[in-house]
């Protein structure tokens, strides 16, 4: 996966800003995608290209259990969110629903990555390659079960 970063240098980006409450009655993913990150950045949808990454701080996706949040991001074009940490339900939803990859990075990587950097993410190597800055960061490895669920394309395809 090789694409551009959209960096939000803040902690606690909540699901209310990722996809505001009034849109929760929408089930069409492409319709949801039109409102991705609406509470934080009105220009988000216009500047994301298919495959891009979001980079953010601690506790990304906190708040409600709405799976609409990773669905809206995915259909807006995002394939992975790289953050210092994730709120647990957002993490589960992203993996179990096979919407996007929640990748935990360390603070050095977080501070080094700039908005619009080009990254290459390789979950097999466990590496994030910053092609713009010519730097390689380690990602936190996925726990065993999480990796298995990712590999089969979501929890509904997984047999314990």
């Amino acid at each position: 996966m090789k694409a551009i970063v959209h960096k939000y240098e803040m902690d606690n980006i909540d699901t209310d800003v990722i996809i505001p409450g009034p849109y929760l009655k929408i089930m069409d993913p492409d319709e949801l995608a039109k409102h991705a990150m609406e509470g934080l950045d009105k220009d988000f949808v216009g500047k994301v290209n298919r495959g891009d990454f979001v980079v953010a701080g601690e506790n990304f996706g906190c708040g409600s259990s709405r799976e609409h949040a990773p669905i809206a991001l995915k259909h807006a074009g995002i394939t992975a969110v790289l953050a210092l940490s994730f709120a647990r339900i957002f993490y589960r939803n992203s993996v179990d629903g096979a919407h996007l990859l929640p990748i935990e990075i360390d603070r050095d990587a977080y501070e080094n990555i700039s908005d619009k950097d080009q990254l290459e993410v390789d979950i097999n190597k466990g590496e994030v390659n910053n092609l713009t800055k010519n730097k390689i960061y380690k990602m936190k490895p996925f726990p065993e079960l999480i990796r298995k669920i990712i590999d089969v394309g979501g929890l509904l395809n997984y047999t314990p």
Binding site: G63, S64, S65, I89, R92, N93, D96, G97, G154, L155
Partner: peptide
């Protein structure tokens, strides 16, 4: 429960936790 505030019910001494709709669908199946 398919809602984050499912935690509420833990006050009766149950293990109560919120999840998204994929996980709820998995439980239903």
């Amino acid at each position: 429960g398919g809602d984050s505030h499912t935690n509420t019910t833990g006050a009766i001494g149950a293990f109560a936790t919120g999840m998204g709709h994929t996980d709820v669908a998995y439980v239903l199946l």
